[in-house]
């Protein structure tokens, strides 16, 4: 096990955001974390990646506890958080170099990995522009590159493909598959069930801060599609009532 999460709990004031989540990810697997809006995905992944202190529970990466020996754990960890800023006055090349330096890489390695990642993610033409001029999808791509540059053994990606175009998504997915087949582990969250079904080999469904289903893709989806199972778990489709005016057109 590369990632072992036990009894993770977090509440804001009275509201419980994450209510005792436990999950594990095998080495070389791509783990999909799915759930409706506000289910606690980002909160959980923030606690897993050492950005948000949990009220209770443990997160162990390899053999290092994220909250007891953070430096050892963070060496093995690559993070792509959702909706957090980057130092966006830096150019793409400067930002990647910066991340490489923060992780203790040397100058030559930083430069060559920057070039490699830019090639693999289709960023070559944009490295000299400030990140603040990037589109949302480009920011996701440069963030993914920043998470990968120190070759971590575990990647925690929060909504990595949101607003990313299909071609770049395919490129990034190829990159992640290659990474996983070489022994890397990925934990990613997404709203896109088709994508999770195509990419991941293990899935957990989180609703209202609890994990309702977890296991290999086939175990979780059963006979139907992942989307059907997900809607079922998330409370099913509620019959739409009281919107009659929407169907009486005033033409």
């Amino acid at each position: 096990m590369v990632l072992d999460v036990r009894g993770l709990r977090k509440s804001y004031g009275g509201a419980v955001a994450v209510d005792g989540i436990s999950l594990t990810a095998r080495r070389g697997s791509i783990f999909g974390f799915v759930g409706p809006n506000g289910a606690g995905k980002t909160t959980t992944l923030s606690m897993v990646s050492g950005l948000l202190r949990p009220d209770d529970g443990t997160v162990v990466i390899g053999d290092a506890d994220v909250w007891k020996s953070p430096t050892a754990a963070k060496r093995k960890l690559g993070v792509l958080p959702d909706r957090l800023r980057l130092f966006d006055r830096l150019t793409g090349a400067q930002l990647l170099y910066y991340c490489a330096m923060l992780h203790g890489l040397d100058r030559g390695t930083a430069r060559s990995r920057t070039d490699d990642l830019a090639n693999a993610l289709g960023l070559d033409g944009s490295l000299e522009r400030p990140v603040r001029d990037y589109s949302v999808g480009m920011v996701k791509k440069i963030s993914l590159a920043a998470a990968l540059i120190h070759s971590p053994s575990l990647l925690v990606l929060d909504e990595p493909f949101e607003s990313v175009d299909p071609v770049s998504t395919a490129q990034a997915v190829d990159l992640l598959r290659r990474y996983a087949s070489a022994g890397g582990t990925v934990v990613l969250s997404s709203h896109n069930m088709d994508l999770v079904e195509r990419v991941c080999d293990a899935v957990a469904v989180i609703v209202e801060g609890r994990i309702l289903a977890s296991g290999s893709l086939d175990e979780v989806r059963g006979a139907g599609t992942l989307e059907q199972r997900f809607v079922e778990l998330a409370g099913g489709r509620v019959a739409v009532e009281g919107l009659e005016w929407l169907t009486t057109f005033s033409v």
């Binding site: 050892a72 958080p81 130092f87 910066y98 923060l102 992780h103």
Partner: peptide, 14 residues
Amino acid sequence: YDHTALWLHVAAPL
């Protein structure tokens, strides 16, 4: 002053 870009420092073994 870094605002949320501070996460880059928090997530690194710095």
